[in-house]
Every structure is written in C-alpha cells, then in structure tokens.
Write a protein that binds this DNA or RNA. Structure first.
Lengths: 348, 348
DNA sequence: GTGAAAGCGCTAACAT
DNA sequence: ATGTTAGCGCTTTCAC
C-alpha cells in the first residue's frame, strides 16, 4: 500500500495565500509581474505548507523538463567518468538534472534506453562512447533521432563518431586519429621502429581510429605495418596484460608499445616485467587517456591527454544553446603528457 | 522557437487502432486482459505512428515515476564511481532510470538538490558520502525527509552516517571503524609502532570514523596516540603528497602510514620517495578503498577493500522492496587486500 | 495585477 | 473485453 500523496498542491498554496492558482504559478515562475505584497504572501504560504512544484505536472503542461540524459557504455572508467562529470557540471550550471544510463556496449540496450529517454522528454540526450553498429541499428537510431527531434530534444553524440548526415544530431568529438598519430610519432621519434599497438576490439570505431593514427604515423616514417604488431581485444587492465604476454610468448619482438588506454598500459607494463623486460630501458610505452593515477604508475606513464570534462561540457552547451537548429560538429584537441615511460630506443 | 511537440498521443493510437484510449493504455501496460486481435492492432498503430508514452503524463496520473535519484559528493573518484555503478545497475534491473547529481560536499547545495529531487517524485533518493552537518542542516533535512516520505519516496543514506532516529530513512553503511581498525592492526602486527594517519578534513564524519578505528587499534596495543602523527586535510593524491612531505619536513618520525584512501596513499608514496625513504623497506603503507589501479602502484598497495558496488545495489534494493516501511539499517563488511606495501618493521 | 478556465497525455474507476 | 469520464498538478491564454 503506497501512501496517498498528501502533499500540498498549487491549489493549497493559492487558498492559503488568498489568491488564484494562476497568480501562484506566476509568482513562482519568476519573471511575470506580481505585486510585492502578493508575492510575499505566496512565499509565506509556500514555506508554511512546505510546497514544492510537481515536475511532472510542470513538464506536462508545456514547460521544459529540465533534464539532460547521458547514455554511456559504462560509468566507472575514468574516461567515461570524467566526461560524465563534465556533463553533470555543465547541466547543473544550467539548472538541469542529469539522467545517467549505461549500455555496456550493447547496441540493443542503447536503443532501448533511448526509447526510455524519449518518454522522459529530456532537453538533451547525449550518447557517449561507441557501439558496434549494424544496419538495423542505424535504422532504429534514425527513427528515434527524428522522434527526439520533433519532441524537442536535442540528440548529441560525444566522443564517438557522428551518426551520419541523414540523422539530426550534434557531434562533439576529440581528435582520436590525431592523438594516436602523435603518440605513435612520439615513439617513432625516439627511435622505435617495431611498435606494438594494443587496440580495442576489431570494428569498435573509437579504437579503429586510433589504429588509423598509428598506421598514418608509421607511413609518415615510411615504415611498413607488421600485422603481428597489432593486437585487438579487451581494453581493460587484464586485457593489456594478457595480450602483451601473448605477443611476447609468440616470440614477436618490439621496443615500443602504444597502449589503447592507460589501463591497458598498466597491464602491459606488468606483463613486460613478468617476462623480464625492463620499462622503459628495454621497452618504451605510451598510453592514451591520462587517467588520474597515470603519473603514479611505475614508471610514471607518458600518455595522451584527452579533454574529457570539456567534451561533456561542450556537449551540454551545444545542446542547450538554442542557436541554429542545424547540425553541428565540434572537434576538440589532445596533447601528449610526457613522463618517464618512453626513452630513446637502444641501438642494435 | 521550440518546435511544437507534434508527437502522437495515446489518442492518436486509439483512433488509428479503432479503439478507446483506455484500451490502448491497458494493452500497453501489459497485465490487463485485452483480446489478442485488439492488442495486435494497437501494437501496429504504435509502430506506424512511432508512439512512445509520455513519462510525465504517466507519472502525473498516479503511476510511479520509475526514477531513482543519487546525490553524491562527486562522481569521478573510484569510491563514488563504483557506488554509483552499483546503484545504476540495480536500478536498471528494476526498470528504473537513474538521476545523478553532485554536491561537491556543500551542504546547502545538497539540500537544494534534494528539493529538486522532491519535485521529480523519484521512487528513491539515495544520499552518498558525507557532508559537514550543522543544526540548520539537520532541520531542513528533517523537513525534506518528511516531505519525501509522504510523497512516497524512500530516502536512503549510503556510505555515510545515518541521519538520526527522528528522520525517516534507510541507512546502508560499510564498517568504516572496523576497516580502519583492521588496517591499523595490520601495521601494528607487523611491528610498526609509530604510524602516520593521513585523515580527511576534521569534522568530516567518514574520516573521523577511520580515526576512531585507528585510535582503537592503537589502544588495543596499549600505544598512546601521538597527535603529531594524525594529519587532517585533503584526501586527494596531492593532499597525500603534501601532507606526508610536511610531516617529514617537520622531523616527525614514523615507520608506518595509514592513508585515508588509495589516492592519498599514492601521493604519500611519492613524497616518501622524494624524501629518500624506501617503501616498504623504510616505511610501510596501507591504503583504504582498493581502487582498480591499487595493484599497479609501486609497490603494489596493500589496502582495505570496500564493498562499493554492493553498497549501491543494496541501497536500491532496500528502497525498492516495498517491505516494512519502518526504518532499516544495514552494515556491510570490509576486508584487507594484502599486496606489497607493508613489511615487517625494521628493529632499531 | 489578478482570476477563470482550458488543456497537457495519461491512468483508473466506473459503466456496459 | 472495451468504452466513458474524471481527474493528476500545472501553465497559459483570455478576460477584466
């Protein structure tokens, strides 16, 4: 048995203040002219009754819902956590509440949740982090995007590839290819020629872009890509460990590692050590992300810093600024943070 | 100019399917008996029109809001991130959306947001992480708690001290004092007698409890507490560094460190090294939290594992299971994860 | 400056 | 099994 909501409504406030509900609504909404005396009486009634508006009733009768929704792969990894923090902070500055959901990389679940978001009439729906797309996915996404658009919600993709020209959405990206290019070049310019790339699952766009950066950098140095040096798989700490160990055990040699992210790098370092390689003396390594503890790894990790917070904030800003309803696209930059995990390649 | 919501309503579906809105509502809600043929026609209409219910309208007309709200100090620290992940996961399993807000430790802001949550009529409001309380805070919190209760929302405190016997709320805690006691005892039993405690800001309950555990453990070993060995301050990585450095520079000696959390520990280790102390040969250190990268620090950090996810999940479970509306209280346990940062004290 | 009244889209009696 | 109708609590014309 759920207790009947015995909470005061706007009508109770009106009665207590001796005015009409319309006046109460106006006094509370702010801008509209209401006499000071009346306003005072109303505010007093609000306090006495401990009245709070009903957000659903408000949203229903036309006003905006004051909610922005984020949909991400997961929330705990620093990469996602910091983007979410940026979204939340910016949303709060705009007086918005923040709805957070996770997909765990499942495209179906993502679509399912977008449907839920549609029901909520969020002011903005922000999609963070990639999923593996297929045709059916694109179909449904398109339909939902249109649905969102004409329900007045802005759809924005953040830190993932844009949805496509036929889908109404804002895109906020960071320079993934450029970052990977810079990371690889950093290793290259230190004299490394055989560089192991610890990439994400094949077909996972974000990771694929990093591979492109890796290839481009190699190409710029006129070095042929050795497929044996590109490992696809789990990007977690253990994935980094296992895959590095596997490559080593396979007898493949390299003096540099470009890890898909810092966690992967942490695992790779451990695997290297366990196999008797010194880091960075024998093998140099560069990460991607710049997580908070990157500087406390052993050795302190040289890595590519991503503008996580800024991505989140920008996504919200773009969605909320009523400006041009056209499609928009922003690309944020990255930079390398040099620490101690990369050193000059030992000449052989 | 916001586009008029030209979305189909339940009435459009009813018309398209040639039935009444009530039938549509019933067919969509599930349980109520509706003939298979009618249901099929309705579902077809839903697809054709791309209809989605309006969550606000639904919530307004009595049904539950299907939203649980979390209010935390911040979201990026693993401690909070993992609790939030637990909440989100459990909420999702119950078909709930998850509203996330941050207070940044500001009590006023916390109250402000609780007010917003009240407007949302969330099924549950979960408060994670402490704030520094004062009398006015307790007053307002009590009023809000009552408001939440008779609007049908459950209030639950999670990983923070219960609100008090006169406030209707569920409490989910972990054994903070016990964990700190165990951590300190671990150092003590390794022969350490002068143990630096890197605590949080004075008056911050969560940290204060850890200090109690520290004191209790010392007392059990009949060792007097040296105030010079208890440092209060920022619990971040830099706080750990700066405060450890300061104590060292002050000439205070110790062979063990109990860090308030793993980040603090990471900073402390760096400070120790920079001052020429080896870890763990000269100084042993134990952390608190067991963050993901704790095992990749140098040396791998011995620490106290907290049941983060479980705290979040339990909070949601307790709130959502309609059982006894009375106050409830759960205390989850902790355990030490032994790695390499603690070693036997060098006899002098 | 203030009030009356018409919805917003849905669910839940209450009929039939 | 299905239809009718009265709200849920609020904002917003339209009058005065």
């Amino acid at each position: 048995m759920s207790q009947p909501s015995k909470r005061p409504t706007i009508r109770d406030v009106a009665r207590a203040a001796g005015v009409s509900v319309a006046t109460v609504s106006r006094a509370l909404s702010g801008d509209y002219p209401v006499s000071t005396a009346t306003r005072a009486r109303i505010q007093r009634a609000v306090r006495d009754l401990d009245y709070v508006v009903n957000a659903h009733a408000r949203a229903l009768s036309g006003a905006t819902s004051k909610v922005v929704a984020i949909l991400m792969k997961e929330t705990v990894t620093p990469f996602y956590a910091h983007i979410a923090a940026g979204v939340e902070a910016e949303a709060a500055e705009h007086g918005r509440l923040c709805l957070v959901c996770t997909t765990h990389g499942d495209a179906d679940r993502e679509l399912e949740i977008i449907k839920l978001m549609r029901e909520q009439h969020a002011d903005a729906v922000i999609l963070v982090g990639g999923v593996v797309e297929n045709e059916e996915y694109r179909e449904r996404m398109k339909r939902y995007a249109i649905g969102l658009a004409d329900a007045g919600s802005k759809l924005v993709t953040c830190a993932r590839p844009p949805l496509g020209p036929d889908i109404p959405a804002i895109a906020v990206e960071y320079d993934n290819v450029g970052g990977a290019y810079a990371a690889t070049s950093h290793l290259l310019s230190a004299g490394h020629r055989r560089i192991l790339m610890l990439a994400g699952p094949d077909g996972f766009t974000t990771s694929d872009q990093r591979v492109v950066g890796y290839r481009n950098a190699l190409a710029a140095y006129k070095i042929a890509v050795d497929p044996a040096l590109i490992s696809h798989g789990d990007m977690g700490r253990d994935g980094g460990y296992d895959r590095t160990a596997a490559v080593l055990d396979r007898g493949v040699e390299f003096t540099g590692v470009f890890a898909g992210n810092d966690n992967t790098a942490a695992g790779a370092i451990a695997a290297l050590r366990d196999r008797g390689r010194r880091v960075p003396e024998d093998v140099s390594i560069i990460g991607f992300d710049d997580v908070p503890l990157a500087g406390d790894l052993n050795p302190p990790l040289t890595t590519v810093h991503l503008p996580h917070e800024e991505l989140g904030r920008t996504a919200v800003k773009m969605a909320l600024q009523g400006n041009g309803s056209g499609r928009q696209h922003v690309m944020l930059g990255t930079h390398i943070v040099v620490r101690d995990s990369v050193t000059t390649a030992t000449p052989h």
